[in-house]
Simulated assay, not measured.
Amino acid sequence: MNDIEQTTANAKTLMRQFAKRTGLDPENDQTSQRYLWTDAFALLNFLALKKSDGSNVNQDSALKIIHEVHHHLGKFASNDPRTGWISELPEEKAKNHPTVKGLRIGKQLPERKPEEAYNQQLEWQRDGQYFHYHTRWITALLKAGELLEKEEFAKWAAELSLAGSYFIIHKNNDISMHWKMSVDLSRPLVPAMGAHDPLEGLLCALQAREMSEFYNEEFDIYIEDLKLLCQYSNWQTEDALGIGGLLLNVIRATELQKKMDLPDAVKPESLLRVVEQSLKAFYRSYEPEKSAEYRLAFRECGLSLGLRCLKGNLEFLEKNGLKPDIDSEIWSIADEIEAFWLSPEHTQVSTFQDHLDINQVSLAASLLARKAPHIYSRTH
């Protein structure tokens, strides 16, 4: 078995375990456990596996996870006094528009009530809607629609994108954004903006509009708001997961730039320069021998996924005038991260087991991106 075959086999094992634990395995009657961030990458993983071996099993898993996400996270939770679809549309119409008013995170605790005091630590455990999780699911839906030839998936992605307009606030001639809203999108739960939310929101909105041919005045206004927010944003970061997202966005922006003129702040050339600076800053404090107890696998695998995708798209980037300036030592980080988290001794620590689903799914994504980088970074 060569290296790529072994890598794919490792990813298959990780995804098989995830499917059994979360109620996706047809031979397991376990209750479905859905979490939007994890499921977005899981969907892409099943699509990558389907592309790799043509298996109907992986296609069925991809279709099932879409159905389960929409029918669980598109509805109020079982511990919520409200029932039915978040959109409050009649049942049949809601099924045809499952994302029209967003999707829940999937946290176990109910959202904070209006009269409850804000508790920063507890807020991470409470339900609601995350803007950044929306963008992950939009990207996954668009890719699923393309590969599985399902036009309605692009429509659902566009409707979910437009739900992001609820996160934007206009006040006193100023514009701002919240990264967490209540389940019904009526009030902010965290009155702050995610560092890369406007960037990801804009790229997703432009891709969803282009692929779904969903045009209306409200969507145009939303896109203009995102452009304005991007104008005053700084994308540089030393966070592994944040850099991984930027790496993917360089590729997505390059693809979009071929079809439309992007704002200066999100042009691929600008994003690439920020990525190069961020990677150098990250590498200065990178500790590959650091104990697993003090590391978060899903954050590191987000970086290795981004590096895999950028490397796998170098020819595409160069054809479009981009040539990344990244040292060989930085490229090798992806190998080091994957090898570290494939070691059984490192996956037994509490920091891995406490986030088992997202850790395994993120690792599988990084592994699969060696062979199929386009699944995670391009719409075509």
Rank of each mutant, 00 (worst) to 15 (best):
Q6K: 13
P114M: 02
N359D: 12
Q59D: 12
E269G: 05
L43T: 10
F316G: 01
I66N: 08
T22N: 15
D354R: 04
E111I: 07
L36Q: 04
M181E: 13
L248D: 04
K50H: 14
N2R: 09
K20W: 07
E210S: 13
V275Q: 09
A42M: 13
R209E: 14
K12Q: 09
Q120M: 10
N28D: 08
E287D: 11
I4Q: 14
K319R: 14
L73K: 08
L367T: 01
Q231A: 03
M211A: 15
Y133G: 06
W341L: 13
M260L: 13
E255S: 00
L109C: 07
P110W: 05
K155R: 15
F282R: 00
E27A: 09
P288M: 08
R308F: 00
L279R: 10
C230W: 05
L36V: 02
V183Y: 04
Q231Y: 07
T13R: 12
T7L: 08
R308C: 06
E255P: 02
T7E: 15
K20F: 09
A157R: 04
G164C: 01
N234S: 15
L122A: 02
A144I: 03
T135M: 11
A205H: 03
L109Q: 12
D239I: 07
L141E: 06
G302E: 07
Q207K: 15
D60V: 03
D239P: 02
F298T: 04
G302W: 13
I333G: 01
E238F: 05
L256N: 13
P81G: 08
W124K: 13
E159Y: 04
K323L: 00
I358R: 07
A253Y: 08
E146N: 15
L248M: 02
H170R: 14
Y294A: 06
R34Y: 12
Q129V: 08
I326N: 14
E91Q: 15
L256P: 05
T254R: 01
P288N: 04
S52W: 12
R252P: 02
K12I: 11
W37P: 03
A195R: 12
A195Y: 02
S87N: 03
F131H: 01
A205T: 10
L247V: 02
